[in-house]
Amino acid sequence: MSARFTLKQLRYFVVAGENSSVTKAAELLHVSQPSISSAIQQLEESTGLQLFVRHHAQGLSLTPQGWQFFYKAKSLLNEADGLSQFAHTLGTEISGSLSLVGFPTFTSLIMPTVLKEYVGKYPAVNVECDEKHQQEIIKGLINGKYEFAITYDMQLPESIDFIPLITLPPYAVVSTDHPLAGRSSLSIHELAGHAMVMLDWPMSREYFLSLFISQGIDPNISYNAQSLGMVRGMVANGIGYSLFNTPVHSNVALDGTKFLSIPLEEDLMPLTMGVAKLAQSNLTPAGSAFVDELEHFAKQILSPANHEKLKKVV
């Protein structure tokens, strides 16, 4: 016999699963606790699955089967919400809420432009965008906090689908008075002997270190920084060189000092920036429209004239 359940039961189940609590789910949904418990019980009886482990006085936790059912239920509810919105507007308007997250190295670079275009076309959509590192991005996608992410193609589990947008090769940044500043291109072997300022973010550090390892050399990491603004300022003031892979629109640090961007001679591993989403979830109409804007932005960045302009900021 096929399982029979309602969207209301699925919604009660998903909220309880997200919060590991019947009590919290009842508060958020403004219903009674017995209503939540009854919906979960009916789902378990209908599907023949044990969805939760009950902990005395400590709430609930999803079973392995429960997690799989949770992802499918979350996806179905998103589709149902999208269908409801479509019916409400007769397909003529994209509206609702859109929650997304981006990796910090390029979120501030691309999001203001894309948001301006998107909000101009779809003013009825409320967009919320966070900045997180890769581990938190993956966690947010899996637990349904974000519909999709703008991030790199690194350390993504099989449960995450990735849509590539831009391939970004690494390049060097140095101060205007650095000993290597007059060069039109640089070898990573030459750079290794000079002081380096490392962007000390988990995935970024691993990536840049891997470039040196691939060449059998060790960098001279003299300073670590926790923000792109700090790296740019330290480089511009001659404290050391650094490696970037995101396009630079300006060669001026926050304190007004300048730096140079110089291509690397070696064919080093690039990073690909794109859209990551939970494989079991479909994008809402608002999400699909935003990805369309991102793809349009990527084509502009990759146009020959703009690509050369961004590559040679001096």
Rank of each mutant, 00 (worst) to 15 (best):
E158W: 04
A149T: 01
I160S: 07
A253Q: 10
I221V: 15
F148P: 13
A3Y: 05
P112K: 04
F297V: 05
M198K: 02
V101Q: 08
V125L: 12
T284H: 05
Y122P: 02
S187L: 01
S214N: 13
K72D: 07
C129I: 13
M154W: 13
L310M: 14
Q135M: 11
Q300W: 11
T63C: 10
E18I: 03
E293G: 05
F5Q: 00
A289W: 03
L228P: 02
T246M: 05
I188S: 02
S2M: 04
L283G: 07
Q215Y: 05
T47W: 01
T284D: 04
P123A: 07
V248W: 10
P285F: 09
E44P: 05
E295P: 01
L199R: 00
F208E: 06
Q300A: 09
E147I: 02
N224A: 04
F208A: 06
D292Q: 11
Q68A: 11
V174P: 03
G229R: 03
R232N: 14
L228C: 08
N245K: 09
F69I: 01
K139G: 10
F148K: 03
L243I: 14
P169A: 04
R4Y: 08
S303Q: 14
L310G: 09
V197E: 01
L100F: 06
P164C: 12
F86D: 09
P164A: 13
P170S: 10
H249A: 13
T176W: 00
L199I: 05
L51G: 04
S84I: 07
Y146H: 12
Y12T: 06
S250M: 07
A39L: 02
A305D: 14
E158N: 07
S184K: 14
S281W: 11
Y146A: 12
E147Y: 01
V125R: 02
L260G: 03
L100W: 05
G193N: 14
T107M: 14
A57T: 11
M198S: 01
A73P: 01
M269T: 13
G233C: 08
I110R: 12
F103E: 12
V291C: 10
P263K: 04
T113F: 11
E18F: 01
L310N: 13
R183E: 15
F244G: 11
A124K: 13
I94D: 02
H178E: 08
T105E: 14
S75I: 04
K24W: 00
K24R: 15
Q215H: 06
G144L: 09
Q65I: 00
E93N: 11
E128T: 11
P104G: 06
L29D: 08
T47R: 02
S261C: 14
H30S: 12
P170H: 08
P270I: 03
T257R: 04
G182V: 04
L199V: 03
Q58F: 06
V252A: 09
S303F: 07
Y241D: 02
M154Q: 15
Q85P: 00
